[in-house]
């Protein structure tokens, strides 16, 4: 498959595809981070995760429209406002869902899967009724368009770079919150041993609610970032949900580092193969590889040893 390419061509191809893979990786990481918290830490299978992401995307779209209409001067920075709104909207919806639905189902993890699937259908139809069935895209501010020319054969898009920076920032923030803050310690304590955590005075119900909301909020931010590189439709969330679950499972459900590494390996394999084979074959090979590895090592790449 390398026949007919010179060494410089090949290097450029690998770098460019590597960069495309990095953008994919950023989106995967953002989606998977929220899911790693909800699924990995809480054990809730949230099939509506993609819809929370799309909510964030629609919020970004609305914000961009508002800025264009009312304060065009501030348009270049609308994205930062949109991200906060997306986080709050998805987080609030998440909190509501946790209160109305999820908290009754903690003892039946497989049933959360079915119930949230129902939720995802409702949300999809709601988006379709409100925003229409057609995909919407946001207008990028001036400074995010264009690309940087690194060498003759290699150029990188600025919006891609921006999404990557954003991902890096959010990942660091989530890592800090989960592993170094007092609240993060409480979350991990509740998830590892609920009864004992309750006994030492942690309000486990409150921790549950805020953890779920945080996971959904991050999904909202992911959706926000997603608008930078693609358009948004009512069913776009469903396209990514399986990939995202696979990433979390492959990385080892309870490890954030594992999630990041698995997102990296899956996206890089996918985008490198994609250049040489057709898109669908690349996807099939990548997924087959992951399923195969999971069969050999069902617990995923990284395992946290805890006493059940």
């Amino acid at each position: 498959m390398f026949y007919g390419f010179s060494i410089t061509d090949l290097t450029s191809i690998f770098v460019m595809q590597g960069f495309a893979g990095l953008i994919l990786f950023s989106v995967y990481v953002l989606m998977a981070l929220g899911l790693a918290i909800i699924f990995g830490q809480m054990g809730v299978i949230n099939m509506a995760h993609g819809e929370f992401m799309i909510l964030g995307a629609y919020m970004t779209y609305l914000t961009s429209q508002l800025f264009l209409t009312f304060v065009p001067v501030l348009f270049p920075v609308y994205f930062f406002v949109a991200m906060i709104i997306a986080f709050c909207a998805s987080g609030a919806l998440g909190m509501l869902v946790e209160w109305a639905m999820i908290r009754h189902l903690y003892k039946r993890p497989l049933d959360t899967l079915l119930a949230t699937w129902g939720l995802s259908l409702i949300l999809q139809q709601a988006y379709r009724s409100v925003f229409g069935a057609r995909e919407v895209g946001v207008e990028l501010p001036e400074w995010m368009m264009g690309s940087l020319q690194v060498t003759d054969g290699i150029e990188v898009q600025i919006n891609g770079l921006f999404v990557m920076t954003l991902t890096l920032g959010i990942t660091v923030a989530v890592g800090y919150v989960m592993y170094w803050s007092r609240w993060g310690r409480q979350v991990r304590a509740v998830m590892q041993n609920r009864v004992m955590a309750g006994a030492v005075g942690i309000d486990t119900e409150k921790v549950d609610r805020y953890t779920f909301a945080l996971g959904c909020g991050i999904a909202g931010v992911a959706g926000s970032a997603f608008t930078m590189i693609g358009s948004t439709g009512p069913t776009a969330g469903q396209l990514y949900i399986v990939d995202t679950f696979l990433i979390v499972v492959f990385g080892g459900a309870q490890s954030l580092l594992g999630t990041i590494l698995s997102a990296f390996s899956i996206s890089q394999t996918d985008s490198t193969l994609e250049f040489f084979l057709s898109g669908s074959t690349a996807k099939v090979l990548t997924l087959l590889g992951v399923v195969f590895i999971l069969m050999l090592r069902p617990q995923g790449l990284f395992v946290l040893k805890i006493r059940k």
């Binding site: 299978i45 399923v291 999971l294």
Partner: peptide
């Protein structure tokens, strides 16, 4: 390998996607 429950569900789902 004693994969069960949620993990089994997700893997079967992936196979369906594949």
């Amino acid at each position: 390998r004693r994969v069960g429950g949620v993990y089994f569900a997700i893997i079967t789902q992936t196979v369906a996607a594949i």
